[in-house]
Nucleic acid binder design. Structure first.
Lengths: 301, 301
DNA sequence: CACGGTGGTGCAAATTTCGCACCACCCCAT
DNA sequence: ATGGGGTGGTGCGAAATTTGCACCACCGTG
């Protein structure tokens, strides 16, 4: 918005050299030189004394530089204010989450949020837990919801909750109604479980590989709808957190039995944001709503 | 120096219309419109709400307008400061004066002034008294020196002094040594007097036309050198103020006898400047020196 | 004296800005 | 319902401005 001269002038004063400033600014020195000469002509005063080593500010140049720097600084502040005002009214939130949350609690959270900010658009991407963390750390997503096994220096956990994996079965299944199950209890059944698309760093694969009693997986799917159909068709036992099937369990269509296991039984799910990004009012509200939604869910029985 | 956008934006906000602002700014409405649209895109926010009647500032627009107006105002002040700093070092003074002063006191005043401001150039224009006043009022001259019969709303009298007309004669002239003369005393002599080049509003012509005893003029000239030669050649009596012949009178080459007459005997000469123009340090000093030079002159005997 | 730095300029290419002609919409009077 | 008079906004070509290349002139240093 402001004349490019302000930036050029500032840099030349800083570098004490037209050619050095041009290098920093990544433009030709003639462009910088001509801008300064033009303003000197407009003002009828020299901004710099030319020396063989470069340029030195004159008294007039010092006065003008002070003005230019003040203008640039005030514009930066104005810009931040405008950015805040703009984002308060409209804008976009990028949410990346494990898919169970996308189904389980996010729809209600978005409904509540949109009553306050109807013009803010939201995108929801489902991804594997470690991809969620990476996206948040890099600033590619505003909010992430995923398991929180390890901390990440660039990720801030805003809230978290225990969300153990468990067995999801039809209500008439022999395991239905158990207060909990162990891996051994699942040995005689085929499993339906989520898949890590890239097959690496999967907490479930890692956990599964440490089991003394191997479990057999019949269906791999991160499509929870498909998983539900398979469970209801008695193709196996679902091995998921309760989050993605919360409504079905509430309605009695499915039963959830928490898994007692060192890793899978001690999973926590958290709401996270980038450690370096500011949290504006809209983002803050969305996180609060998601945290509250998840906080109200009974996920361990 | 600053982006033209600032000016356009300010005016659109003032006029509440792109087309009206364009008229005021004397540019096409598309130019103004595109500047605003471009900045709105840069900022990612609307500056105006568009209505069928024109445009209304948005909250963001109000914030930015405040910034723009502050920048423009601060630049104006910076510019004035720079102008003062520049003019302190170099510059130009336009002086317009009646020619007697150009010869009498101005040379010494300029000599003294140039010791302080060697780089300020000076132009001296001689003119009839009313032309001096007009030039100063219009700002065409920085300093004027002339008779001050009437006041002018656009002219400020910085200092003035009594400078009556009188008879200038050779030292051996019969009138030499008289303390004063009346019009009647001059009746038997031919006059050498200044001429109003345009022949209108001349104080001398007006004064002469009211005399009961008509005086005969032999030579009309505003060239004081020629007047002096005519006086010394006994072609007549000079009818001038003492200013232009001060050195000659001091040296005894000519005698000055003040005229006792209602108009010509009560003339005052003043140093004047435009009432609306600022008086910078250089201009102030020049006025002071001229006033001091003229103040030290004994003009009434 | 040569080299490596600086600021500064002529000129043509590249880019931006501007204005004309026009479109679409709105409001108001008839 | 229609026409007139206003508004903001756009496509396009001309005009103006900006940019960078190639080069000049000067200065300080080894």
């Amino acid at each position: 918005m402001h004349s490019i001269f302000l930036k050029y002038f500032d840099e030349v004063a800083r570098q004490r050299s037209i050619r050095k400033a041009a290098l920093v600014l990544n433009v030709s020195s003639t462009s910088v030189n001509r801008k300064i000469l033009k303003i000197e002509e407009e003002l009828g005063a020299s901004l710099f004394d030319r020396t063989p080593e470069g340029v030195e500010l004159t008294a007039v140049g010092g006065i003008l530089l002070e003005h230019c720097r003040r203008v640039l600084h005030e514009f930066d502040r104005t810009r931040v204010l405008i950015d805040d005002m703009r984002d308060l009214r409209t804008g976009h939130l990028n949410i990346i989450t494990v898919d169970s949350v996308a189904i389980g609690s996010l729809p209600r959270a978005i409904n509540e949020f949109s009553k306050v900010y109807p013009d803010i658009s939201i995108s929801v991407t489902t991804a594997q837990p470690e991809d969620v963390v990476d996206a948040v750390a890099m600033g590619d997503a505003d909010i992430g919801i995923a398991f929180t096994f390890t901390s990440h220096p660039d990720v801030r956990i805003l809230s978290e909750k225990s969300a153990p994996f468990g067995a999801l079965v039809r209500p008439d299944h022999p395991l239905s109604g158990w207060p909990s199950v162990t891996v051994e209890d699942l040995a005689g059944y085929r499993l339906i479980r989520t898949i890590d698309a890239r097959g690496r760093n999967s907490i479930i694969d890692q956990a599964m590989s440490t089991l003394v009693t191997p479990l057999s997986t019949y269906v791999f799917t991160n499509t929870l709808f498909l998983a539900k159909e398979m469970i209801l068709s008695n193709h196996g036992i679902g091995l998921y957190t309760k989050i993605g099937f919360y409504d079905e369990v509430q309605r009695g269509e499915l039963s959830f039995i928490p898994l007692i296991q060192a890793t899978l039984g001690n999973v926590r799910v958290g709401v996270m944001a980038s450690a370096s990004a500011a949290i504006g009012p809209a983002k803050r509200l969305m996180c609060d709503i998601i945290s509250r939604e998840m906080g109200s869910m009974r996920l361990d029985s």
